[in-house]
């Protein structure tokens, strides 16, 4: 199952040098690989294993996820405002599928 419905909160504008929080949420079941189905067969692992945040083409934050991260992973982190530009958020799961979202910010 691919990750879907990315939701990202980035302020529309910020003062130069301001430190602000970015909150992200994506829909994904995050199957751990430890559970068994009703026939006793293990359900294969399927998780979002990597999350990256790029700003104007440069990676500024990465997260490696393990099966212990809850379903529909919520990730929040901070950024310092330096210039106006665009944030690109990418979630990649075990099947190799990825989903992206972009948000722009005005700095000044």
């Amino acid at each position: 199952m691919a990750a879907s419905r990315p939701r990202v909160k980035v302020p529309k504008s910020a003062a130069k040098g301001e430190v602000f929080q970015i909150k992200t949420l994506v829909t994904h079941k995050m199957e751990t690989g430890l559970r068994k189905d009703k026939d006793g067969q293990p359900i294969p692992r399927d998780i979002v294993n990597t999350f990256t945040c790029d700003f104007n083409g440069k990676t500024v934050f990465t997260m490696k996820l393990e099966p212990a991260v809850s379903a529909n992973p919520y990730i929040a982190f901070f950024q310092r405002a330096t210039e106006s530009g665009e944030y690109t958020f990418t979630w990649t799961d075990d099947t190799g599928e990825s989903v992206s979202e972009t948000k722009s910010i005005q700095v000044g």
Partner: peptide, 11 residues
């Protein structure tokens, strides 16, 4: 670029 070494998630 993070400005602050803080990150949150749910586990």
């Amino acid at each position: 670029a993070c400005g602050k070494a803080e990150a949150s998630t749910r586990i």
